[in-house]
Simulated scan of single mutants.
Amino acid sequence: MTELRIDELLKGAYERLRFVSDSAQLDAQLLLAHVLGVTTAYFYTWPDKLLDEKAWAEFDKLLKKREQGEPVAYLIKQQAFWSLLLEVAPCTLIPRADTECLVETALSLINPRENLRILDLGTGTGAIALALASECPNARVMGIDLIDEAVALAKRNAKNNQLTVDFRQSCWFSVLEGSELEGHALFDLIVSNPPYIDPNDEHLSQGDVRFEPKSALVSENHGLADIEHIIDTAPRFLKVGAYLLLEHGYDQAQAVQTLFETKGYCRIVTHQDLGGNDRVTFGCWKG
């Protein structure tokens, strides 16, 4: 193979990916940066550098996988979220920028300097729990996930980002039921990005979500079953005046608000994500 300049390789990669990705140029840069062990800024500084055959073969292998729809985050095994760089794996969802809306909303409801107890349900990579821990240095943060591999991954992300979070394996609140945390050391804040997609949603066969674990995406009752369970159970672990925040689908805000109201929460509000879609609804437990 004739050696090619980096800028020429990236142009060719963009042409290959532009029919399968809305972010083809960035995808190509991230994949090549991963191969070379550099940041994307390198390509603007050294566009005329040549790629050797070994690096080209590795880059081409990743491009082929991306052409099949495999998410870039899984291919390079990392994703930025909040101020953190997180390891990702196919056992968890890929953290998305829209979920930062949940973190921002949570921080607006608390005093980050206080000694708070915070719980993140369905923590996955640990993204939400770790973001909150990074902003609340005095808080005791716990993250729970059903999947053992996800818990192990979240623990690695905590270590890599030098943050302290108590990650545990559990089916929602089950590990806490009957423990010292039920009815005694209650939480000041509970957050969750639970499964909320209807099992029959056509989007499950499109884009990156085809490669993500269905257990973290899909919920029965039109995507509301897990949300309803969390809303019903959370009061056993919330202090009076504490908040429960849930991420949900763009068209689920009214249904989620109704579930909060039916259970007796107050101050129920929905916030929008970066695209202006309803994304996070919270309620205050009035006891």
Rank of each mutant, 00 (worst) to 15 (best):
K77M: 08
T39H: 09
R5H: 09
S192K: 05
A185I: 04
L36P: 12
D22V: 12
Y243F: 14
F187A: 07
T258W: 10
D226W: 01
D226M: 06
I227N: 01
N193Q: 12
S134K: 06
E220I: 02
T281R: 03
L85S: 13
L119C: 07
G287R: 11
V269I: 14
G249T: 00
A152Y: 04
I118E: 08
D148E: 15
E149R: 03
V191G: 03
G37D: 13
E135A: 14
T164V: 11
W46F: 15
L132F: 04
A225F: 05
L32K: 05
E228C: 07
R113N: 15
G12E: 15
S205Q: 14
A234N: 00
D7G: 05
H222W: 02
E114F: 04
V209P: 00
G183N: 04
L30A: 11
E220C: 07
L116P: 01
A216K: 01
A89W: 04
Y74A: 06
P90C: 13
L17G: 05
E180R: 10
R236S: 14
L10H: 04
C266G: 13
L31D: 05
S192Q: 09
P95E: 02
G69T: 13
L153H: 05
Q254N: 13
I227R: 00
L9N: 06
L109H: 03
P71T: 07
S205A: 15
K286D: 15
D166C: 09
A97F: 09
V240T: 15
R236D: 10
C101K: 05
D166L: 13
L274K: 00
P213W: 08
Y196Q: 02
W285T: 07
G178H: 12
T164N: 09
L224H: 01
A225S: 15
L93Q: 00
P213R: 07
E177M: 12
I110G: 00
C284E: 15
Y44A: 14
D145H: 06
P199F: 01
V151N: 05
D201N: 14
A127F: 03
S219T: 08
A242W: 04
V20F: 11
V218Q: 10
T164A: 13
C266P: 01
E149S: 14
V256H: 00
K159T: 12
G124K: 02
L116Y: 02
G276A: 08
D98G: 05
L116N: 02
Q68G: 08
H229Y: 13
Q29K: 11
V269D: 14
G178T: 11
L245A: 14
A139R: 00
S83W: 09
D120A: 13
H34I: 08
H271S: 15
T123R: 06
W172P: 01
F167M: 11
Y250G: 00
K77R: 14
P137T: 04
G122Y: 03
A150G: 10
G276M: 08
V88P: 03
D120E: 11
L246Q: 00
I147T: 14
P112H: 01
V35T: 11
D22H: 09
L181E: 03
A150C: 11
E177G: 07
D232W: 01
A185W: 09
